[in-house]
């Protein structure tokens, strides 16, 4: 038995029919081809699958697609606008905030939610916010710098901060 749902992903509305047991991450990746969010641990520990659900960072491996019916979803693909990287993407690029890149889409989605709530976070606040995103390459230092870099950019150019998701 399937169920009809509606998901608005990065501003585009999708109507589809899913099994109730389908996870949001698999519907995003396998049905709708948003392959930015990654499948990591599949047990809500690693954060590689983090997306925004109605503006809040969630682990999409631990949300059923039917639970997200009617919601706005933003994936990492929704961050850039008009071919211009979002400040968080620029920050990761400039500070070398990634090596293999697998955790990066999730890191960015958690970081952008933090910056929405707290435009000028301390290092401690950044580290606490990223607690649910694991990186096995970098030792986190450059990721923290990338978020600080993005925060500075977004404070200088507040208009850019409205970028993602629409």
């Amino acid at each position: 038995m399937t169920r009809d749902i509606s998901l608005t992903v990065n501003g585009t509305e999708h109507e589809l029919s899913v099994e109730p047991r389908a996870l949001l991450i698999s519907v995003l990746r396998d049905e709708l081809d948003y392959t930015g969010p990654n499948v990591g641990c599949e047990s809500s520990m690693c954060g590689a699958c983090t997306v925004h659900l109605d503006g809040e960072a969630v682990k999409s491996c631990t949300v059923l697609a039917v639970q997200a019916d009617g919601c706005d979803v933003t994936t990492v693909e929704g961050l850039a606008t008009d071919g211009e990287f979002h400040p968080i993407q620029q920050g990761f690029q400039e500070e070398h905030g990634l090596q293999c890149g697998y955790c990066t889409p999730g890191m960015m989605m958690t970081a952008t939610e933090l910056l929405d709530r707290n435009p000028d976070p301390s290092e401690e606040e950044i580290r606490e916010a990223l607690e649910g995103n694991l990186c096995r390459c970098t030792g986190y230092q450059n990721i923290v710098r990338a978020v600080e870099n993005a925060a500075e950019k977004m404070q200088q150019e507040p208009a850019v901060a409205d970028g993602g998701g629409d």
Binding site: S44, G47, L53, A57, V58, K59, T110, E113, E131, G132
Partner: peptide, 9 residues
């Protein structure tokens, strides 16, 4: 409890 993403859900 948990982390940011867990506390959001």
């Amino acid at each position: 409890v948990g982390d940011v993403q867990v506390r959001n859900r």
